[in-house]
Design a protein around this nucleic acid. Structure first.
Lengths: 352, 352
DNA sequence: CTGTTAGCGCATTCAC
DNA sequence: GTGAATGCGCTAACAG
């Protein structure tokens, strides 16, 4: 015995029709209507048609939350990302969203910012919404605080990490071999006869530390020695992309002051590299003749700047697609791998 | 009389504790637990403490969907956007998400693509999820098909359009005076003594048509005549930003072939302008001495290309913030305006 | 101060 | 073939 669901808009009361409304109009019970909606068999064709017609006429739309309550399934998945404005993160969210939406899931996406407490807070929000799975994009989710929070709040559901790993039975990982990718970059530059390579480092995320490690390893393998003063930390830690160029500029300024004989610089991200390029050119340094520059992420920025930027393509979008597939595999009971590793590509343009 | 909610993960059964579990352990009724959770008064301090402790120990998290069912309120809002990868759209989604999340709402975001049928489909998804409000970002949502779909599926809730208007009682609009902004751009270029202005047009969205109209008006007001052959349509209609530069290049190629005496070109977007810049420079055309170039959107791309790009800042992020505020005003019963108009800024850089 | 009852919208037994 | 009853997890109105 139910009436119309009622909610308010500026005082006015608005209603959505329920299966009970339809049932009453059709002179049948709610269960019959439910069966028709879900295409269940065993309904007389004539009543099925009558109900279908009424559903249409009344603009009936099922309340998926109510359905989810009884089915124990919300068809929601959560996406967590530090800052969606970072262009390769945007692409990640896009592909995940498309893939999950196609399979009947809706995505709840949050930009968490860099702080662990915030990340934990958003994990709890996902728990409250009873998402059936989650994808966390970015190596900065591979922290102990996040691990504990997942264990506490998301232990019942599959969680996929993109570009990071966490040892938990319900956590799956898509890894990207950025260390090796950076080694490749170093090897390429060394192969051009360059000997004084510098590295501009971004905030010390696990991913950035792996890249730096790749720089060191690559140097060693090429028989070059790493001067610590040639490793420059870009200042600040804002994730807003509009600040990254300026941070690259500052770092490049320091580099020129400290390391006059530098002949190549690898940057942790494309935008840092763009800032670096600008400063080099402004100081009359010929790129790539005197100094080569290489970025990471293969963003559009690298295609636009002058000279165009060589970059390590770390396949963020591709790994996010893999993440969506792994999540779907688990959700739909297919077997899948707990860890997948993707390899990077070197994109060579004018700056090297 | 209820037990544990049960759901499955790879065959294993996992449970979330409910208020009934807590109630049983505390030896009280579910309503008492509910009162404690919601901070309602009139509970003996000792039992309140006991229940709080149990909630903590059991990692209790309220099921907001169940709560929403009885409260007739999901605390969800929907965001629709053509393509989140377009950089100014990304910023829009970011600010809306931050704002709504701060106020206890979660956002369901969909990239709809350009087709009306898809937009309608996503509007229906929002209805199924019972969002309490929606923000549609982009002028291409101001179509008749969308209007009808809103009327049919979202008539009970506030809907805010960013950069477009729709005549419906529950629809609010944030408008941007891009027509006037483009006029300003024309006036600026004409003020430099330029006489043969061209326009590179993007897909014919309402917004782009207003800009084109602004171009025509601006020309007229400056006493210049518009040669129709100086209005070039960029080919294709993919919203993926990675294609936009190429489309700008093609258009610029046509322009150079058809209009040898052109001395300024306004482009409908920054990325088209970037492509245009590239082609001009490759053909030995001096920018801005021989030809000035101006974009729209004030994206990071314009700060990166060489020469840096003058652009009309159409304040997408600011208008999205306004949209969020309008939506919150309506949702929380405050009075607000049905239409807000924002003015653009001209950002002058090297390309003019 | 707290328990009982009812119902949000829906799907799923079990009867008939 | 179809209906009545039950419960998903939660809040609210009414008792006591």
């Amino acid at each position: 015995m139910q009436g119309k669901a009622s909610c308010r808009l500026h005082g006015k009361v608005v209603c959505k029709t329920t299966i009970y409304d339809i049932a009453k109009q059709a002179g049948v019970s709610a269960s019959t209507v439910s069966r028709v909606i879900n295409g269940k068999p065993g309904i007389k064709e004539s009543t099925r048609q009558k109900i279908k017609k009424l559903l249409e006429e009344n603009d009936y739309t099922p309340n998926v939350a109510a359905r989810g309550l009884v089915m124990q399934s919300t068809r929601f998945i959560g996406i967590l990302i530090e800052d969606i404005r970072v262009s390769h993160h945007t692409d990640s969210v896009y592909v995940i969203e498309q893939e999950m939406t196609d399979c009947g899931y809706a995505c709840i996406t949050f930009s968490t910012g860099p702080r662990d407490e915030q990340k934990v807070k958003y994990i709890e929000l996902l728990e409250q919404r009873r998402v059936e799975g989650a994808i966390l994009v970015g190596s900065m989710f591979a922290t102990e605080a996040v691990r504990q929070s997942i264990e506490k709040h998301l232990s019942g559901i599959p969680v996929v990490l993109v570009n990071g790993a966490l040892e938990l039975p319900n956590v799956y990982s898509i890894l990207i071999d950025e260390e090796r990718g950076t080694q490749d970059g170093v090897a390429y530059l060394a192969g051009q006869g360059r000997k004084h390579l510098a590295y501009i480092m971004d905030v010390a995320t696990p991913s950035n530390q792996r890249k730096l490690q790749g720089f060191r390893l690559g140097m060693m393998q090429c028989g070059l020695t790493v001067e610590e003063s040639y490793i420059i930390q870009a200042p600040g830690e804002d994730t807003n992309p509009s600040g990254a160029i300026g941070r690259g500029r500052v770092a490049a300024g320091q580099l020129l002051a400290k390391c006059p004989d530098v002949d190549a610089v690898l940057c942790a991200t494309d935008l840092l590299a763009v800032g670096c390029l600008q400063v080099l050119l402004e100081n009359g340094v010929a790129v790539p003749r005197q100094v080569a520059v290489m970025g990471v992420d293969n963003t559009l920025y690298g295609q636009i700047c002058t000279p165009t930027l060589s970059t390590m393509d770390n396949k963020l979008a591709e790994s996010s697609l893999n993440a969506a597939h792994v999540l779907l595999d688990v959700l739909e009971g297919r077997s899948t791998s707990h860890k997948i590793m993707l390899l990077t590509d070197l994109i060579l343009r004018q700056s090297t």
